[in-house]
Every structure is written in structure tokens, then in C-alpha cells.
């Protein structure tokens, strides 16, 4: 169940489709909608859906044309349409563990918090871009070296968060790493290895 959506509007709830085609009054009634979101929703409602629409995503340097409902999240588009299952779905909606972290225009983003139609034209990078056969990104190598994983479910998301963070702060300090990677959650308890990996790369000035 998309629990929170239901709670906000009582039985029956509302969903992303309602959100997109909804009147300003409906959107304004939700506590979390900002004026900007409202404006976007109005705009989207005018031109998109409710059936499938053509969407073009630029993922890992390649253009992909999809025919999907406008309410499809980036996460579902990547996972179910493009089979890029490295970004993991933790099946939460309003909040997120970061297991679905991707990089959009250089910034770490939870893929479940964006609609696919919103990110057209933006550069989307998934964890799959960090491996080409035996050739792997230094962050992946560091995660393996420091055993920064157990079950591995949070791991690709953490790899992407680390990659984006080190791109921005190649010489990060321990304190910066601890706050900069605070947006992701690991249930198994692999933070020590992740910290060691990020710190090792930052100490030599990035990778």
C-alpha cells in the first residue's frame, strides 16, 4: 500500500495520476506540495496523460525512447523498462533508504522521488555505468577492498552516493564523508567499510 498517500486524503487516497491531473485546490490541500510543484503539476496536467506518453531518457550516455504513463517514476522506468536493476527499490514511497540512488546532472538523487517525464533532457547516470566487464570504477573497487557490503542491497545506491559525493568533494575529510553520505541507509551495518573506502580515495585526492 502506498500508505502515506492514503493517509493524507482519507480512504481512497490519491495517487500520482490524481496529483498530475488534479486541480490546484486538491494539490494545495496536501501539506507537502510547494507552489513550484503545483505549477509543474498544472503544466503537466495540461499536456500529459492519462494514458501512455512518449518519454525520452538519457541514461548512461544513451537515449532511450519509452512509452509509459506520465506517473511512472524514474525508478520504475529504469528498473522495469530499461532493466537497469542496479538501483534497488526499497518499496517506500515518501521516504527512501537511498538504495535507488542515481546521479542526475552530477547530483545524487533518489530515483523513486522523480517522475521519468520530469528528467527528460537531463543526464542520468546509473551504477551500471561504473562497470564495463572487468573494468570497474575505483569506488566499486574500494567497496570490495574494504568489504563495504553484506547483503548488498543498499550497496549500489551507496556506491552512487559515494561517486557523486567524491566528484564534488574529491578531498573530503572524515567529517564531510560522514555528513555527505548521510542520505543513505544500510540495515546490515556496513558503514565502516564505506567510510574507509571513501576516506582512502579522498586521501589521495579523489578518483
Amino acid at each position: 500500500m502506498r500508505e502515506h498517500e492514503q493517509q493524507r486524503n482519507g480512504p481512497g487516497g490519491f495517487n500520482r495520476r490524481d496529483f498530475l491531473k488534479g486541480s490546484g485546490a486538491v494539490v494545495a490541500a496536501t501539506a507537502i506540495a510547494t507552489a513550484e510543484q503545483e505549477a509543474q503539476a498544472q503544466k503537466a496536467a495540461a499536456v500529459q496523460g492519462p494514458g501512455k506518453v512518449d518519454v525520452t531518457l538519457t541514461v548512461n550516455g544513451k537515449q532511450h525512447k519509452l512509452s509509459i504513463e506520465p506517473r511512472t517514476t524514474l525508478l520504475d522506468a529504469l528498473r522495469d523498462q530499461l532493466n537497469l536493476t542496479g538501483c534497488k527499490d526499497d518499496y517506500d514511497t515518501t521516504s527512501c533508504s537511498g538504495s535507488d540512488t542515481v546521479i542526475i546532472d552530477g547530483k545524487a538523487v533518489y530515483a523513486s522521488t522523480r517522475l521519468a517525464i520530469e528528467v527528460q533532457g537531463q543526464k542520468i547516470q546509473t551504477v551500471e555505468s561504473l562497470r564495463d566487464g572487468d573494468k570497474i570504477d575505483e569506488v566499486i573497487a574500494g567497496f570490495v577492498k574494504h568489504d563495504a557490503m553484506q547483503c548488498g542491497f543498499c550497496t549500489p545506491g551507496f556506491v552512487m552516493a559515494t561517486r557523486a559525493f567524491l566528484n564534488q568533494k574529491p578531498k573530503a575529510t572524515l567529517e564531510e564523508i560522514q555528513s555527505g553520505l548521510g542520505g543513505n541507509i544500510c540495515r546490515c551495518g556496513t558503514y565502516k567499510g564505506i567510510t574507509a573506502c571513501a576516506l582512502e580515495i579522498a586521501k589521495k585526492g579523489g578518483a
Partner: peptide, 9 residues
């Protein structure tokens, strides 16, 4: 399986 896990494979 470290690389497979970390790379999302």
C-alpha cells in the same frame, strides 16, 4: 561476489 553486488549486477 563483491563486484557484482557493488556494481548492481
Amino acid at each position: 561476489d563483491g563486484v557484482d553486488k557493488a556494481s548492481g549486477s
